[in-house]
Simulated assay, not measured.
Amino acid sequence: MGLFKKNPFGHNLFIKKWLIRILGVLSHRRFRGFNELQIDGSEILKTLPDTNVLFISNHQTYFADVVSMFHVFNASLSGRDDNIKNVGYLWNPKLNLYYVAAKETMSAGLLPKILAYVGSISIERTWRSEGKDVNRQVKMSDISAISKALDDGWVITFPQGTTTPFKPIRKGTAHIIKRYKPIVIPIVIDGFRRSFDKKGLRIKKKNILQTFEIKEPLKIDYDNESIEDIVEKIEYAIEQHPSFLKVLTPQQLKEQEELNEQRRWKS
């Protein structure tokens, strides 16, 4: 790779590679050390094409979620099976990996700007701005940027657009799926909200079990399924459909309490 080669967004790949290496080394113990990231399904990543793959996930913190994905994806592609042991997998990271994030979040401070250079597709939220509810049109330049990223590689998105659980899925994700027909891989994460602050920068509690499940590609009839159909599939796939709020049976409650005990903060 030449020193001056750039990606479609004009980011120097040599600089991007070193930023991923440095940030990866600095963040590694957050997922393997201070806490323990339990991964399931990483073998699926090894079967995927190099471009036009869209990852959809629930969202728990601004930054830790996507940082964990950079670790898991690169570890898997370098031969690890459901683990991020030995941070050497970051020596040759996947450089055509992007994630969708709010523009105002990625421009608020030096660290977010560095994280943006690593792979952010920064878009203007149509429903929220500067802490207030808004209602504005989707910018075509934002849609074009996501299309460009899919053409170049893999894209991570959080279709709820918020870290608050069980909020509605934004239809924009379904429109992108229907229009560009990517392979859609659901991811379900947990434990991040308990172990990090809302931004995902400060460790709030240690010895938390963090879970990271990669699921099989969604089966989607791109031509015949409606936007509403795809939205519902996304809700179920990332386990954010209202039905997941159902009352638990005594046995399920006991199992949940046992799992929470593993996730409990141990001083």
Score class of each variant (00 low, 15 high):
6 K>H: 05
7 N>K: 04
12 N>A: 06
14 F>K: 04
21 R>P: 02
30 R>K: 14
32 R>C: 00
33 G>R: 06
34 F>Y: 14
43 E>H: 13
45 L>A: 04
50 D>W: 00
54 L>C: 03
56 I>C: 08
57 S>E: 10
58 N>E: 04
59 H>D: 02
64 A>Q: 07
65 D>H: 07
67 V>M: 15
67 V>D: 10
69 M>N: 11
71 H>Y: 04
71 H>F: 01
72 V>P: 05
75 A>N: 04
78 S>V: 06
79 G>S: 01
81 D>R: 14
82 D>Y: 04
83 N>I: 05
86 N>F: 05
86 N>I: 04
88 G>N: 10
89 Y>V: 09
91 W>A: 11
95 L>C: 00
98 Y>L: 07
104 E>T: 02
105 T>P: 00
107 S>R: 12
113 K>L: 10
115 L>Q: 09
119 G>Q: 05
124 E>M: 10
124 E>P: 05
126 T>W: 01
126 T>Y: 02
130 E>S: 15
139 K>S: 00
145 A>S: 12
152 D>G: 11
155 V>S: 13
156 I>Y: 08
162 T>I: 07
164 T>M: 11
168 P>H: 01
168 P>Q: 03
169 I>D: 07
181 K>M: 00
184 V>D: 07
186 P>G: 06
191 G>L: 07
193 R>A: 10
200 G>M: 05
206 K>H: 04
209 L>R: 14
211 T>R: 14
214 I>R: 11
230 I>N: 02
235 E>Y: 03
248 L>H: 09
248 L>M: 06
250 P>N: 01
258 E>A: 15
261 E>L: 13
